[in-house]
């Protein structure tokens, strides 16, 4: 089945890797919506390459540059937080990937679920902050919420083919970070540079997940 995808937060780490997945499967996926908060230059580049129907920039200060740069393309251009959540409910979208960072990921997820659009969830805040609201809404609307995070995707995959079978427990694996096996005394002296030197893939300095475990 061919899917029209909305990538919310397309200029971040997950968003750009999602576009690599689209590149690998041009017959399977089309990009319908791209959004970014501030990275207007990369958003313009992505819009020209993937020709979505709609692009949204969160920071309204970048609107004129974005619309000017895309004036020769047949792409609708919007700006602001309200537009950001409205596009999640675009009727031509088959799946919304919520790969934006921060609390602002909540409302677009709610809008997509209300519109009955399946959500590929990569925004941490959505479930940490309001997991009860979100999952109740998804159940009520019978819309799938599919986790993107590698640990939750692993559990989701393990649960396939097990309808009605009770889970005793799940085990989330952790790399342990750069301070695995260290004591509290060591941690008191930890610096920013040490904290960012992660053994498996360097931590993104903008990511809030710099602590081990």
């Amino acid at each position: 089945m061919h899917k029209n995808i909305a990538i919310l937060g397309s200029t971040g780490s997950i968003g750009t890797q999602a576009l690599e997945v689209v590149d690998a499967h041009p017959d399977r996926f089309s990009v319908e919506v791209l959004t970014a908060n501030n990275s207007v230059d990369l958003l313009i580049e992505q819009a020209k390459k993937y020709q979505p129907n709609i692009v949204v920039i969160g920071n309204e200060a970048h609107y004129s540059l974005l619309s000017e740069s895309l004036k020769n393309e047949s792409i609708k251009v919007y700006a602001g937080e309200e537009a950001m959540s409205q596009v999640a409910a675009t009727s031509t979208v088959d799946m919304v990937l919520t790969s934006m960072v921060g609390f602002s990921g909540l409302l677009p997820t709610i809008r997509a679920l209300e519109a009955g659009i399946p959500v590929a969830l990569a925004n941490k805040e959505t479930l940490v902050v309001a997991g009860d609201l979100i999952m109740n809404l998804a159940r009520q609307k019978r819309v799938p919420v599919i986790p993107v995070d590698s640990e939750h995707s692993a559990i989701f995959q393990c649960l396939q083919g097990e309808p009605g079978n009770e889970v005793e427990k799940i085990m989330l694996t952790a790399s342990g970070g750069p301070f695995r096996g260290k004591n509290v005394e060591f941690l008191r002296k930890v610096t920013r540079c040490q904290a960012l030197n992660h053994p498996i893939g360097k931590w993104d300095i903008k990511s809030p997940s710099i602590q081990p475990l």
Binding site: L127, G131, D132, I134, M135, V145, P147, S150, E151, H152, S153, A154, I155, F156, C158, L159, V167, E168, K169, I170, M171, L172, T173, A174, S175, G176, R180, P199, I200, L213
Partner: peptide, 24 residues
């Protein structure tokens, strides 16, 4: 929330190689 579990059903295991992504 995703898997409708109780807190005591969720364990964390340190696995430095990051090859097993999680288990049920």
């Amino acid at each position: 929330w995703l898997f409708n579990l109780k807190p005591e059903q969720i364990e964390v295991v340190v696995h430095p190689q990051s090859i097993i992504h999680s288990m049920v």
